[in-house]
């Protein structure tokens, strides 16, 4: 696992895999540090969100910061009342799962000044070459600019999460590397990691640097 900052924000296009990666990243952090929180700040989508993994987080003694309405039957784009713990509690490592696109990134506006002030954060752009609206490098640059404008924060890295769901083969991931590297080069940001389903790791371990294994949040 790479060197971490105190706060890690996962942003990107809708459906790019932010939630799964954020949860897995928090699990990895928790294995090395006692005080970790996951903040579910998704105000865009009431389905498939970090709060769905409430039990798994509790099992691992990871704090969940999320709206009381999240995951319920009330479709309210509400923010959690304890979200300021992300910036105020500097003993805690915070993993922040931000909603998709620029709409989702709007929530960062409230946190951005304190995060910039502390200057101990990473904000990672999650990309998937197999999502229709982030298929090209140009698409990713557009999404990046929109999110940065809405959130008032610059990205610090790129995560390649290119996958085709359950049909993902090692070849799909390998084919996406040139795209991911091009996004990194064009943005001037490091390619922080390439995340893949855990069962693909053996086939890819020797071919891709900074591979990050994902256990899936939910399977259907």
């Amino acid at each position: 696992m790479m060197k971490h900052k105190r706060v890690t924000l996962f942003c990107g296009h809708y459906g790019s895999g932010k939630t799964n990666i954020a949860l897995n990243y928090a699990y990895a952090l928790r294995s090395r540090y006692p005080k970790v929180a996951v903040a579910d700040l998704d105000i865009v989508n009431p389905y498939f969100r970090a709060k769905d993994s409430m039990a798994e987080l509790a099992d691992r003694d990871i704090r969940l910061i999320c709206s009381a309405y999240a995951g319920g039957n009330l479709d309210i784009p509400a923010l959690p009342q304890d979200m300021y713990a992300i910036t105020d509690d500097r003993d805690m490592l915070s993993v922040v799962d931000v909603g998709g696109d620029d709409r989702g990134a709007l929530v960062l506006g409230r946190l951005a000044p304190a995060l910039r002030d502390e200057n101990d954060y990473d904000m990672w752009l999650v990309i998937n070459r197999y999502r229709p609206l982030t298929r090209t490098v140009a698409d990713c640059l557009e999404v990046k600019a929109e999110i940065e404008a809405a959130g008032g924060m610059p990205f610090t890295g790129v995560i390649n999460n290119s996958n085709l769901g359950r049909e993902t083969e090692p070849g799909h991931v390998l084919d996406s590397m040139a795209y991911a590297e091009a996004v990194a080069a064009k943005t001037g940001l490091p390619l922080v990691m390439t995340s893949v389903k855990a069962d693909l790791v053996p086939a890819l371990a020797n071919q891709i640097e900074n591979l990050f294994a994902l256990s899936l949040q939910k399977t259907y």
């Binding site: 459906g15 197999y130 999502r131 298929r135 085709l164 049909e167």
Partner: peptide
């Protein structure tokens, strides 16, 4: 064309 990963609504 390659397959893409989509939500039902997007499809």
């Amino acid at each position: 064309m390659d397959k893409v990963l989509m939500k039902g609504n997007e499809a």
